[in-house]
């Protein structure tokens, strides 16, 4: 790469890594696995950098690599699962009660990890990154009906495992 491209890549990585890490953390449930996943996505993006004309293209490319890698590769979550509550008190939550917020996070994290990788990816794409079903299908390289099916099953399981999300039945059912 030229110096200008190197600089552009460095800027992209340093500006967007944390956003990618946030999604990767939801996909993996673990800080280290999330870093591994984003590292892989960034490395593939670096290989393709000369073909990517704009930074937003680079981020879309990186996210696509990340989701494909997470769905297709085996990523082992057990160590993370063995450390309940890890990292959960470092940042404030949306509730005034830190203990309650921690319990909610632990419950949601465990529920997410109980989903299949594809279901987890669909949930993150639809309800964290706010993509449409069509966009999620394009991102994952599957049909829209697959996204709907996976989403429906995932939400059903989340409702069963996270009491706070039972009210989602009417608000955020499959659409």
């Amino acid at each position: 790469m030229t110096d200008a491209r190197d600089a552009a890549y460095a800027t992209f990585v340093r500006e967007r890594s944390h956003a990618l890490l946030r999604s990767a953390y939801l996909l993996t449930g673990d800080q280290h696995l999330a870093e591994d996943l984003v590292q892989e996505a960034l490395a593939r993006t670096h290989r393709a950098w000369s073909r990517l004309e704009r930074p937003d293209h680079a981020e879309a490319y990186a996210r696509k690599v990340m989701y494909h890698a997470q769905v297709s590769l085996w990523r082992r979550p057990k160590v993370a699962e063995a450390l309940p509550g890890e990292n959960l008190e470092r940042h404030g939550g949306s509730t005034d009660d830190p203990a309650e917020a921690t319990v909610r996070r632990v419950a949601l994290r465990r529920a997410l990890l109980s989903l299949s990788p594809k279901q987890r990816a669909v949930v993150v794409l639809r309800y964290f990154e706010d993509h449409t079903e069509v966009e999620a299908a394009q991102m994952l390289g599957v049909s829209v009906s697959t996204v709907k099916t996976q989403c429906s099953r995932a939400l059903e399981r989340l409702r069963g495992l996270v009491p706070d999300l039972r009210s989602l039945a009417d608000i955020e059912g499959p659409r």
Binding site: A24, R90, R104, R105
Partner: peptide, 9 residues
């Protein structure tokens, strides 16, 4: 809830 959880990273 997802956004709150993602803050953990």
């Amino acid at each position: 809830s997802l956004s709150d959880l993602a803050d953990s990273v």
